[in-house]
Design a protein around this nucleic acid. Structure first.
Lengths: 244, 244
DNA sequence: CGACTTCTTGAGGAGACTCAAGGGTGGTGG
DNA sequence: CCACCACCCTTGAGTCTCCTCAAGAAGTCG
């Protein structure tokens, strides 16, 4: 036991003690299924909830006045959903299911209990949030300063790193429930131009790309196009409070 | 007493008890001065440190291969610097002083003590991080999906909201140590085009803009151009653990 | 006053967008 | 089992936002 896949984000930073593992169990209780395209929260909603995704993928998006949308993040199992809505009165992003999913709604009281009773877990949760922030920073820099090819490269490498953490078996072949239009919304481009860019990367032998699947054929070239360095997760853990 | 301006970010979410105030004092000990343009940390560095900014402004940037840079954030007094570097082995962003500044280096042990001994403060720190994340999300959406005018509007409104929190006296006139080139790097545009956009907003009577100072003349129009809703800070605080 | 930074404007070019249409693929229902 | 439909991918042509290059004006600081 002591191996719930959805705790992968916590495990990325530290081994979990038995007691901590037990303390996290309430987070994965009462799992609920949602159909593909189900909406977990809608931007502007008053009631904000937090979810832990157990199975499947979801996406978080913001809509601008002319109807275009920006995908802020795709979530995969183990990711927490809804945290950025905590400090504000209205839900900032729309979250919907990219596949059929299983998720747990987390009562905010549970979150409070975690901070009160499990300081080391709270610190890990804090680290997870900083990691989210860093991923947004990388994407901000890529969208602000790179060509569409560069943005796409950053996005693919980021997804690759995250998917590898979930499944170490993955090497260079990635399966995802994302269309080219989704990628366009992730990198702030149009579907047409995203498609042309993908075609170019295919012709250059850098990617293989089939519906819902891609293979990184030339990782070095993709890194070069991305321009940003690889982020190696491995915090200085010495400051973490002792486990309870 | 019990009024250190640099704790403004914590106070935004909850009143601080006397004991909590005392627990935060170590964060503001041994303030140190840095000259304008001093570099607090450089991307790629191994040793990551965390700072609390007490006076002045700093900026966080990433550099892409062709030498262009993206400004990820400007910090003002009360902001924490260096947190996104905690989960990774190399510092992701370069932080330098936009003005002469005063800042405190925070020992990571202090951070650990805070999580262990002050769960409510830890939860507030967590909320602050979610707020940072949300500001990045807004900027990501604006850079990805809005025109340069829209991105500029989002940026100005965000700065306005933050500066107002520090100084409630501020109404619509904003003084900042930022050049038009800095704004260009903030919104992922060129200096030239940023300038043209500012000129347009001035002609339209939406902004007054002088070196290091701007005035919002037509807030409604600026909001309309920005497209994203105002984020009202006011979390559901009921889940916060009790103060110690 | 002189050197530097910052702001401003012009002209031309390129990456990305818009509009449009056709082909492929998978799912569904008759 | 086939026909149809919806969604997704692909490609072409024309346009526009934004960029590049360039140069000069204005403001700032020693």
């Amino acid at each position: 036991m002591n191996d719930i896949p959805a705790l992968v984000r916590f495990r990325a930073f530290a081994h979990l003690e038995e007691a901590e593992f037990a303390a996290l169990l309430p987070l994965v209780s009462e799992p609920k299924s949602y159909k593909m395209n189900a909406v977990l929260q809608r931007e502007g909603d008053r009631s904000s909830a937090v979810y832990l995704l157990l199975q499947g993928w979801t996406a978080s998006s913001m809509t601008v006045p002319d109807g275009q949308r920006q995908l802020l993040k795709v979530h995969m199992p183990g990711d927490l959903i809804g945290l950025p809505g905590l400090p504000v009165t209205a839900v900032p992003d729309t979250v919907y299911a990219l596949t059929d999913i299983v998720a747990c709604r987390i009562k905010l009281d549970e979150l409070g209990r975690l901070f009160a009773g499990q300081p080391r877990l709270a610190a890990l949760l804090f680290l997870i949030s900083q990691e989210e922030r860093l991923m947004l920073m990388d994407r901000l820099a890529s969208i602000g300063r790179l060509s569409v090819a560069g943005r796409l490269a950053v996005m693919i490498l980021q997804l690759h790193a995250r998917m590898t953490r979930h499944d170490p078996e993955i090497r260079d072949t990635l399966r995802w429930p994302l269309t080219q239009a989704d990628f366009a919304d992730l990198i702030g481009a149009t579907t047409v131009h995203t498609n042309r860019t993908i075609m170019q990367l295919r012709q250059d032998g850098i990617l293989r790309w089939d519906r819902n699947e891609a293979e990184i054929l030339d990782r070095a070239a993709l890194r070069r196009i991305a321009g940003l360095p690889e982020r190696k997760t491995a915090p200085n853990q010495s400051w973490l409070p002792p486990s309870i």
